[in-house]
Every structure is written in C-alpha cells, then in structure tokens.
Design a protein around this nucleic acid. Structure first.
Lengths: 187, 187
DNA sequence: TTCATTTTTTGATAAATGTCAAATGGAAGA
DNA sequence: TCTTCCATTTGACATTTATCAAAAAATGAA
C-alpha cells in the first residue's frame, strides 16, 4: 500500500485525511503467471495499481494475438475503454509474471471524487500524464522501420525486452516475430 | 461561445455560476488558412476550443512533415505535451482553413480548477474521453495494410478525406502519398 | 538428467510499400 | 484566358517486410 501512496505523491500529494480515505477503498489482489485480470467481453469495473509483476493487454486480430501494451511495477492499469465507458472490453489483460495489485471499484472511486476535490485533481493529473505517454508511443511507432522500432524500444524501455517473450514484443512493435528476430540479429 | 458551452454539456453539465466564470476566462481568436497556432520550440501556454475550421499537428522527421492529428469544429486543441509539461513543443499547429477559436491560458484554467471542483471534474472527464479516442486511433493504426487504413479512415472519418490534402492524410496514415494514391485507385 | 513443450531462429519466396523522377490535373491569380 | 503553382497520379525499380515451413535453442516438468 505504501507503494501506491508513494506513487500518487509523484503526481499530486494528498492530505493525510484523503490518503486514509483512499487506503480504505483499495483491496489487495494477487495473481500467478498467465492468469487473466480481464477477458474480452467482460466489463472492467475496477481500476488497479500494479505493485509488483507484469501484465499485458492484447486483442485478437485475424485470430492472432496483438499485444498493444505492457505494464510493470508502479503503474495504474485497467481496460481504460471498458472502465470509462462501461462497455464490454475488446482486450484481454493477462499476467506475464506473478503479480500483486491494489484494486478500487469505479463506484468507490466516484464516491471519492464526490467527497474529495483532491482526488479528482489527482486523477485529472494522472490522465494528463498517461495521455502524453500514449501520444509519445503513438508518434514513436509512426513511420518507423522494424529496426528503428526495436532500437527505440531497446533505448526507451529495455525492461520490456528483458521480461517479455519476443512474440509479444513483436506484435507490440507492429511487426512479425520473424522480422524482429532478424532485425535483432543484424545489429 | 454558445458552441463551447454546448460542447462542454456533453461531457459534464456545469452550474450557471461556473458557466459564467468560464465564459469570462475565454477569449476569441481568428486565423486564416496556413496560419500557425503554434510553432516548434514554442511553449504552448493555452488550451483552445476550435469552434469553426480545421487544424493539423505535424512534426518534422528526416526533413519531412508528419501530420499526426487533425482537428475540426467542436474540439479542444493544444499541443498537449507542451501545455501539460510546460516544455517547448515538438510539433507545429497549422490551420487548414480559416478558423475561429476560443482560448484560455493555463494560469486561468488552474485558477478555475482551484475555485471550482466542477471544472476539475469536467476536465478529468474530457481527458478520459480523449484518452480512449487516442487509444482507439493507436489500435486502428497497428498492423493494418495501407488499404485497410484508408478504408477505415473512409469509414470512421470521411470528413478528413474531404477537407484535407492527400499529402497530409498519407502521413497521418503512416504511408507515402504515392502508396495512398495507388491504393485509393485500386479499390 | 531427460523428455516434452514452447520460444526463437533460419530459409525460401511472395507481397507490400518505398523511392525517385516525371507527367498530369486543378485551382487561384494576373 | 493564360500562366503559374501546387496537388495528385503514374511508372520503373529497389527495399522491406510478411508468409509458410522447418530447424534449432531454450525452458520447465518429471
């Protein structure tokens, strides 16, 4: 839990009162490798903080799994589209490692919004940051060759390559596993 | 101004008092085609509401302009990375048509956040929506052929093809102008 | 360790897309 | 209308990447 509070402080420091209210709303969950946090067509009603472990989000395209994001320690995760809209998820969330999370329901989060302006500010700021991270990822993938994408990943997020099977990484980069394997060898 | 208030109501309806406070903080600006709202290396200190017209965001890669977004009537626009972080922009914002915007400074917006929880909620909700729109755009561009990207654009956002030169559209889709031209003819 | 399973690499070939150069088409202004 | 400028298309060719099949390597369980 201290991990979560520390993480939050980096975005927007909360008063003691609000910190305590927040702690009351989260519950701990643990999973093992290959477990699913969420499957396609389920509605994601919770926001999670990943304290320990690793997770991927993927969807099916022409029968193939396309991993479009990874998450590691100290990140907020959920199926954002489903969580925000209340519609069934198009993505699956699967653990890449045994993991520990803290979970809060959408209802409880909305109660917190209503009670504490501070929480709404915190979340506004978190969304801002997540928005620009996503934008960055979008731009970095645009108009790049297989080798450039691999090189950029190696530079910006080497932990992904260390902790995730290549098959998942290749779809994350938008290339086939064979191409990733070749490109990696040539350089 | 009524356009802006109406747009806001779709996200989160504000009380009269807050609506009035908001109106006081925005000022109108007009531009002609090809004008720049922002140039590379400038810090973007304002958030804009595009009431009428069209705008693109682009950056330079190997000397070529890469357009990575378009905006049309009834959208909030800014260089999000620069606006949020206060750092110089890597992108240029240029008008594709004569346009009318409403502008609010970051300082004034932050004053509004402090005074009105409602405004912070509104913006939190706007970020949520913009986040999932960006995510959707990210996923739609991933692992698609030139033809699929064109077809999807034609289906999801035909107005772009009607109002924007093909050269800008092609870089938006992550393909060359020649390929877009060919792919378009073949189908 | 050994076996079974999964992951990664390699090879041969096809398909898609990029590049460069030139031609065509269309729009706006003189 | 003519001219100029910019946008779009076309052609020839090179390059990159995908696809399919199989081999090799790595991993994990018995």
């Amino acid at each position: 839990m201290e991990h979560l509070l520390k993480h939050i402080r980096q975005f927007y420091p909360l008063s003691n009162e609000v910190n305590m209210a927040l702690v009351d709303c989260f519950e701990e969950k643990t999973f093992t490798k290959n477990d699913f946090l969420l499957k396609e067509n389920q509605v994601c009603r919770n926001l999670y903080f990943l304290q320990q472990g690793a997770l991927r989000g993927y969807y099916l395209l022409d029968g193939k799994e396309i991993t479009h994001w990874f998450a590691f320690e100290n990140a907020f995760v959920t199926s954002f589209h489903s969580f925000i809209t209340g519609k069934p998820s198009v993505e699956n969330l699967q653990f890449l490692e045994g993991s520990v999370l803290w979970s809060i329901s959408k209802e409880k989060l909305e109660q917190l919004y209503n009670r504490y302006h501070e929480i709404e500010r915190l979340v506004r700021i978190v969304y801002e940051r997540y928005y620009i991270l996503l934008e960055e990822r979008y731009v970095n993938g645009h108009f790049k060759t297989a080798w450039e994408r691999y090189r950029d990943l190696l530079h910006n997020a080497p932990h992904i390559l260390e902790r995730v099977p290549l098959g998942h990484v290749s779809s994350y980069l938008g290339i086939t596993q064979e191409t990733l394997s070749r490109v990696r060898k040539q350089h």
